[in-house]
């Protein structure tokens, strides 16, 4: 039986993501150097974390608070109102912010699978439109599929375009 050092690392890493999210609320596209800072912060957290860390940094209630704040910060910008007007970023947020926000379930899961630097979906540069559409309609692991009633085909086009906006080549 082994309690792995990963546990305090994850807690600190997701806190680091939360800090990154604060930047994102005012500046949706994370710059490369921000991502480096994030990775470094997470890495530092890993090496400095005490195995029995009960200082509060890893406290579930604190993490929960961050999760709520992240989504609410987006709502403050009128996500649903802008989505109704066809704003691509808002369409993405209105449908995906539940999980793909700082410390949302999707972000935590992606952090585990791909590392914290790849965890925030809106900052990715390696997604293709085809991949986004496939995942949305079929689900992935514990992510539920989204129906065409919830996300219309037209809205999915906007979401896919938004999530691939930072790609170098843009092609699938």
């Amino acid at each position: 039986m082994t309690v792995r050092a990963f546990v305090p690392f994850l807690a600190c890493a997701v806190l680091a993501l939360a800090a990154c999210g604060d930047k994102e609320t005012s500046e949706p596209v994370a710059e490369p150097e921000e991502m480096s800072v994030l990775a470094e912060t997470a890495s530092t957290a890993e090496t400095q974390a005490e195995p029995n860390n009960t200082s509060g940094d890893a406290h579930g209630a604190e993490l929960t608070k961050v999760s709520s704040q992240a989504a609410a910060a987006e709502q403050a910008k009128g996500v649903f109102k802008r989505a109704a007007q066809g704003d691509a970023e808002a369409v993405y947020l209105a449908n995906c912010q539940y999980c793909h926000i700082q410390l949302g379930p999707g972000t935590i899961t992606l952090s585990r699978r791909l590392g914290p630097e790849e965890a925030l979906l809106a900052n990715r540069t390696d997604l293709t439109e085809g991949y986004v559409k496939t995942v949305v309609r079929n689900g992935l692991n514990t992510m539920p599929a989204l129906t065409r009633v919830e996300v219309s085909d037209e809205e999915l086009e906007l979401i896919a375009a938004y999530l691939t906006r930072n790609n170098n080549s843009g092609e699938e």
């Binding site: 709520s68 989504a71 935590i108």
Partner: peptide, 20 residues
């Protein structure tokens, strides 16, 4: 609003993560 969570009526879905 503090503690900014469902305790004070701010929505989130974080608990869904238990399915992992």
């Amino acid at each position: 609003r503090e503690p900014f969570s469902i305790a004070v009526g701010v929505p989130m879905v974080l608990p869904l993560n238990v399915v992992n």
